[in-house]
């Protein structure tokens, strides 16, 4: 077996993990499975594409590749703006859709169905604006570096892995060491009590949307950089995202990240061992197995 699957699996797992953290946070605090979460990845990727293009057009120096990487400063700058804008998109969606349903104290299934609808609408808007033709942040080609053991990694891939590690660590600190993070965990455990203690639950919900969508944007930009940008980019990752969120245990950030890596590595291994056509089935198998054997996942609370 070619060990290269380790690199592919870790890369895919990083994107899945970042996306799954957003799903696990919104799931545990808003108490519904948001099927529109995948679209935050796609929108993040396309917003970064548009902004990066605009920056490159205005200041052509920003297009020159930075060091060993395939992209210029326009992409990281656009990425930071895209994180904020994707967060705004999530807040907008909450204001016009989910927030209204919450105010009506609607059933969970209504929220889930609404998220399906939102997902379709968001994806169609992307196809309408950008067409379904794949797009790329850069035309530059990259040579993979041999890092020993027969493993080959491009500088972009190494950057993505390092960035994921930093971001996950930062989110972990946010949740465990800051006031807003403690408030998020409090609302996740008991929203009514959180209110009694003095936590503004609506503010926490807004913070969770921004964090979840921001992470989705980072995952989307990474997917766009390392693979390609398509309107279906997020949608195609939805099943792995949910498999990772549930395997990690709803509400657990380290769980979602670890499970993301497990799902990514399993997929990459399956491609080699069974065949590429079975890749998509792996998430499904993991999802069903976890729900049957250990529904609370690796680090989830006892239901």
């Amino acid at each position: 077996m070619n060990p290269q699957f380790l690199v592919d699996g870790l890369i895919a797992g990083s994107m899945i993990g970042l996306g799954a953290i957003g799903i696990t946070l919104t799931y545990s605090i808003l108490r519904f499975a948001n099927f529109a979460h995948g679209e935050f990845l796609s929108w993040g990727a396309y917003i970064a594409l548009a902004l990066s293009g605009a920056l490159g057009f205005l200041f052509s120096a920003l297009k020159t590749p930075v060091g060993p990487f395939s992209f210029g400063w326009s992409l990281p700058l656009a990425g930071i703006l895209a994180i904020l804008l994707t967060g705004m998109l999530a807040l907008l969606l909450d204001a016009i859709l989910f927030g209204r349903l919450r105010a009506q104290r609607g059933a969970v299934i209504i929220m889930v169905m609404a998220s399906f609808g939102a997902s379709l609408a968001l994806r169609s808007v992307l196809e309408f604006i950008f067409t379904s033709k794949p797009a790329y942040y850069t035309k530059a080609l990259q040579i993979a570096v041999n890092i020993g053991g027969g493993l080959r990694v491009t500088p972009d891939q190494m950057l993505a892995l390092a960035l994921t590690a930093v971001v996950v660590f930062a989110i972990h600190l946010l949740l465990t060491r800051t006031g807003i993070g403690r408030s998020m965990r409090a609302v996740s455990e008991n929203p009514a009590l959180a209110g009694v203690v003095g936590i503004d639950v609506r503010m926490v919900i807004r913070a969770v949307w921004i964090v979840g969508a921001g992470l989705a944007c980072i995952a989307g930009v990474m997917a766009g950089l390392l693979v390609q940008i398509r309107p279906y980019l997020g949608h195609d990752l939805l099943l792995p995202l949910f498999a990772a969120a549930i395997l990690g245990g709803i509400g657990s950030v380290p769980g979602a990240m670890l499970a993301g890596l497990i799902v990514g590595l399993s997929e990459a291994a399956a491609v080699q061992l069974i065949g590429a056509e079975w890749r998509a089935a792996i998430s499904f198998v993991i999802l069903v197995a976890v729900l049957l054997i250990r529904p609370r996942g690796l680090f989830g609370r006892q239901a």
Binding site: R182, S183, V197, G198
Partner: peptide, 14 residues
Amino acid sequence: IFATMSIYENLLLA
């Protein structure tokens, strides 16, 4: 009380 948090964190929240 918030069962998944420590005594100290429960107090810190308030």
